[in-house]
Each structure stands twice: as structure tokens, then as C-alpha cells.
């Protein structure tokens, strides 16, 4: 598993090549890339700054990745989350999951993102024409996380 919290940008193609290298059991890779969007809550956004809790952010991402590896049949996971100031259109986060089959890869990828959004200690401050403001959490993110928590079903939703 590769977990990285970094200021530098990442090359998704390179990361996926690394993820699948020397593992012929992999038949599917699902990936997600989060980007700095040009608007939020009705206002134009020009940039954002990502703050994090350095001692905790990478370790919780590792924990989320390990949960995914226990829950689905997957071979490997890469999670990269950037911090610092990011401009419009820049990449924020990459989650890539390699598995024998697509179903496990899709589910694990979404699971990791849903837990990352609600448990990993990162905070976005966005720049708008009115100044800077902290991004508010979305109720739908918490609902997405809750949807994975079902003690009677450990295989998927």
C-alpha cells in the first residue's frame, strides 16, 4: 500500500503503473481524482489551501486502506493527498485500487473516499471574491460514510 501526504503534484498514470507493476493477479484498477472546482456554495472559487494534522493524516489514510483490504478482495491501494495552496483545476487527491475484478475495485475506491472525506484530518480553506473562508462539511458526506456501516453485511452495500 502506498500512502502519501505531500505538497507536490502527482502523476496518476505513473502511480497506476507503479500500483500494477509485477502483479499479474490484478485484472482491474479503479481510480478517483479530486480536483479544485471553480465554485462552491454559490460562489466562484479561485484557489484553496489545505491544512492537515501531520501526525495523524497519513496514519488514518493507512488505517482506511487496511480496512478496505480486509473488506474486499483487492491486491493493492494507493492514496495520495496534497496539502498547501492549490490553484483552480489542480489535483487534490488520488485513490487507486487494484483488484482481480472490477466490482471489488470500484467498491473499495468509493469506500476509501467516503471515509477519507469524513475521518481524515484535512481542512480546506477556499479563496473567493469575498475573501477566504473555511469549507463547511456536507451532510451528504457523512451519510455516504454511514451507508458503509452495516454489521449484517461485510461484503458491500
Amino acid at each position: 500500500m502506498k500512502i502519501s501526504v505531500q505538497e507536490n503534484d502527482f502523476d496518476a498514470a505513473m502511480e497506476i503503473a507503479e500500483l500494477r507493476a509485477n502483479n499479474a493477479r490484478i485484472g482491474a484498477i479503479a481510480s478517483f481524482i479530486g480536483l479544485v472546482r471553480d465554485n462552491n456554495a454559490g460562489d466562484a472559487v479561485t484557489a484553496m489551501t489545505l491544512e492537515h494534522y501531520p501526525a495523524m493524516s497519513a496514519s488514518i489514510l493507512l488505517d482506511i486502506g487496511e480496512q478496505a483490504m480486509r473488506r474486499w478482495r483487492i491486491e493493492d491501494v494507493t492514496v495520495i493527498h496534497r496539502t498547501g495552496t492549490l490553484q483552480l483545476g489542480e489535483q487534490i487527491v488520488l485513490v487507486a485500487v487494484a483488484a482481480p475484478h472490477r466490482h471489488d475495485a470500484f467498491l473499495a475506491c468509493e469506500f476509501i473516499m467516503d471515509f477519507l472525506k469524513t475521518a481524515a484530518p484535512f481542512w480546506k480553506k477556499e479563496r473567493t471574491a469575498q475573501g477566504e473562508r473555511w469549507v463547511e462539511p456536507r451532510a451528504t458526506d457523512e451519510e455516504a460514510r454511514q451507508s458503509w456501516i452495516d454489521p449484517t453485511d461485510i461484503s458491500g452495500r
Binding site: Y53, H81, K117, A120, P121, F122, W123, W134, P137
Partner: peptide
């Protein structure tokens, strides 16, 4: 609230030398 980088609830005990972090709901990703 997190104690030593683990999320806890308000009933959790704090020991000498612990690192306690207090922060708003997270908004990464």
C-alpha cells in the same frame, strides 16, 4: 477531539504527556 492521533469522545481519559487535538469537522478529499 483526538488523543494521540485517535478520535475519541468527551468521556475519554487524558494521561500525562498525551497529545490532545481539537479540530472542526474535516473537509479534505
Amino acid at each position: 477531539v483526538a488523543i494521540n492521533q485517535k478520535l475519541v469522545d468527551v468521556g475519554a481519559a487524558i494521561k500525562a504527556g498525551d497529545e490532545v487535538a481539537i479540530f472542526p469537522p474535516v473537509t479534505g478529499g
